[in-house]
Amino acid sequence: MQKDTVNDSLNIVEEDIESVDNHLETGADFESQTKDSEFESSDSENTEDEQLKDDSSTDENDESQQVILDYENKVKDLNEQLKLEREKALRSLAELENFKKRKQIEVDNFKKYSIENVVVELLPILDSFELACNHATNDKDETIKNDEKSIIEGFVLIKQQIVNTLEKMNVKRLDCINQVFDPNFHQAVAEEESEGVDSGVVLKEMQAGYVLHDRVIRPSMVVVSK
Rank of each mutant, 00 (worst) to 15 (best):
Q33V: 03
S37A: 10
I125N: 03
Q160F: 11
Q179N: 07
L122N: 06
D127V: 00
D139V: 00
S220E: 02
Q33Y: 10
K168N: 03
K145Y: 00
M206T: 05
I125Q: 05
E60C: 02
N164M: 06
S32N: 14
D4T: 06
V224Q: 02
F99Y: 07
I144P: 13
T143R: 10
Q81D: 09
V224K: 04
E14H: 11
E72T: 11
D127Y: 00
R102F: 08
I217H: 09
Y71W: 09
K35M: 02
E15K: 12
D43V: 12
S37P: 05
A94D: 03
K101C: 00
K140Y: 14
D21Q: 14
V20K: 13
I17N: 01
T34R: 12
N117H: 15
Q2P: 03
Q161R: 14
T47N: 13
K149A: 08
L157N: 02
E195S: 11
R91C: 03
H213I: 01
P219Y: 04
S44M: 10
P124T: 00
L126R: 04
N146E: 14
D139K: 10
Q81W: 05
N178L: 04
L52V: 04
S44E: 11
I125G: 01
D21G: 08
V75F: 15
F185L: 14
G154W: 00
K88I: 04
R91W: 01
K145L: 01
V224A: 01
E87K: 11
V222Y: 09
K103F: 07
C133M: 05
I115E: 14
L126Q: 04
P183I: 05
N46E: 14
E167Q: 15
Q104H: 02
G196M: 00
V224C: 03
V201G: 06
D16F: 09
F155T: 06
N46V: 15
E45A: 13
I17K: 04
L69W: 08
D214K: 09
D55I: 09
D29C: 06
I158A: 06
I177Y: 09
T58C: 01
V180L: 12
D59M: 10
E40R: 08
D214P: 00
F39T: 12
G154S: 04
